[in-house]
Nucleic acid binder design. Structure first.
Length: 425
RNA sequence: GGAGAGGUGGCCGAGUGGUCGAAGGCGCAGCACUGGAAAUGCUGUAUAGGGGCAACUCUAUCGAGGGUUCGAAUCCCUCCCUCUCCGCCA
């Protein structure tokens, strides 16, 4: 959420910064609401001050022995009543404006960081670096072909169980997925991350706090009978882990590694990535999340990205790091690095992790603060996939394929899967 | 699902109509004591939004929303949530 003070005092510069995302933004109406709201607050509160003064005086006089039914007390009561009525009218107007202001503020995306490169869409993203040597020989299979051959998962039967875009991992496939989750969590916790296994049903306040609501309601699955939604990412429950809290500054940064299944409606992606593990309504993900002191968030962003990269490096999966331009930035992000893993079968880099610094955007929505001396300030939040498990499996299958049709597993993963390689059964 | 209890500051916990933003404790910070520390003592320490260069000051907030009153943490109504016991259940 944007800072309402900034909107009130510097609407033009805020509009300009938001405009870097590619769409012109007009804040004049919002600024007017904010201004009116503040004016009303001023009159209302000074009126209330007068009312409080009268109330106290009545109490004092009665205590001092005045007749509670006497004329002078009655006169004060009358004044009190008249103020009360005026305040009631003002309060109603003010409440309306406050609600409007809040509602509006929640619909604006975060301000891009000044360091975020300008651009209109993904074609303007910038490749920062590459790691590893991609396999580029011809005739390699795509992961879903391998999976079919090795019977790692069943998509057709999953339609029977649920719908399209669901997958049932079976046999070695299920085992590999489980091994990957354990491997990732072990790697992160060995570096000091606190492991989290959160609820995957989350309430509206949680989704609003991390930025999915109110704008992206159609992207999430909702439980009709309850105020609960299926979480689209562990980022949501982990943000709300500290919602409405003040975190002592000596505890920062708090670093969490949360495994959760993730649920996305993928509205508007008909026909894209219909085969395999790339785009599903339900997938597994290990998410890294930091609550950081505002002064530390830039470094934290480098670190969280490095921690995500470490998973790919340990798994010997070639990848590249992309910096998103302003036009491709997510709603809550100020700056984002995407990790794209090389899929030899598909012959393409695919996003496998997105590491974002959100500044105080989520912290303001979720009211997560820290204390520094006397001052209370909003913390900064960061998130990064470490990693999307299904896509990781796809990369391992495509990268590890050997001439005899078996799949070599990365060394680091062998103890987790209990197999040297995957073979047709 | 049935019965009961309760929601107060960073935490615990008092407070049933008047200067209560709220006793006391814990925690935290500063100071004193000390060679240094512990212990002890003193002082300070809620959040949000206004106004002011600042000192400071105003308003709101005791789960949420209404009501009674000149005045509500305290009384009334509605709702939400949490806990305990019973039932059911992985």
């Amino acid at each position: 959420m944007l800072d309402q003070r900034l909107v009130r005092d510097n609407p033009d510069s805020i509009a300009k910064e938001l405009g870097r995302r590619g769409k012109a933004v007009d804040l004049t109406r919002l600024q007017l609401i904010a201004q009116q709201q503040r004016n009303l607050e001023e009159t209302r509160s000074s009126l209330q001050a007068e009312g409080n003064r009268i109330g106290k005086e009545v109490g004092q006089r009665i205590k001092a022995g005045a007749d509670p039914q006497g004329d002078d007390v009655a006169e004060l009561r009358k004044q009190g009543n008249s103020i009360k009525q005026k305040v009631a009218v003002l309060e109603e107007e003010e409440k309306l404006l406050t609600t409007q202001l809040k509602e509006q503020l929640l619909t604006f995306p975060n301000l891009p960081s000044p360091d975020c490169p300008e651009g209109k869409d993904e074609t303007d993203n910038i490749e920062l670096r590459r790691w590893g040597t991609p396999r580029e020989e011809k005739g390699l299979e795509e992961h879903w072909q391998i999976a079919e051959r090795l019977k790692l998962f069943d998509t057709e039967r999953s339609v029977r169980i649920a719908q399209s875009r669901f997958v049932t991992l079976m046999g070695q496939g299920a085992r590999l997925e489980r091994g990957l989750i354990n491997f990732m969590l072990d790697l992160h916790t060995s570096k000091g991350y606190c492991e989290v296994l959160p609820p995957v049903l989350v309430n509206t306040a949680s989704l609003t706090g991390s930025g999915q609501l109110p704008k992206f309601a159609d992207e999430s699955f909702r439980c009709a009978e309850d105020d609960l939604w299926l979480t689209p990412t562990a980022e949501v429950p982990v943000t709300s882990l500290h919602r409405d809290e003040i975190i002592p500054s000596d505890q920062l940064p708090l670093r969490y590694a949360a495994y959760s299944p993730c649920f996305r409606r993928e509205a508007g992606s008909y026909g894209r990535d219909t085969r395999g593990l790339i785009r599903l309504h339900q997938f597994n993900k290990v998410e890294l999340y930091w609550f950081a002191h505002p002064d530390q968030s830039a470094e934290a962003h480098q670190q969280i990205t490095a921690d995500a990269e470490a998973v790919l490096q340990e798994l010997e999966l070639p990848y590249r790091v992309i910096e998103l331009c302003t036009g491709d930035l997510g709603f809550s992000a100020r700056r984002t690095y995407d990790l794209e893993v090389w899929l030899p079968g598909a012959g393409a880099y695919r996003e496998i992790s997105s590491c974002s610094v959100c500044g105080d955007f989520q912290a303001r929505r979720s009211s997560i603060r820290t204390k520094e001396g006397k001052a209370t300030k909003l913390v900064h939040t960061l998130n990064g996939s470490g990693l999307a498990v299904g896509r990781t499996m796809a990369a391992i299958l495509e990268t590890g394929q050997q001439p005899d049709g078996s799949i070599r597993l990365p060394k680091a993963l062998i103890p987790y899967v209990g197999l040297e390689q995957l073979e047709p059964k």
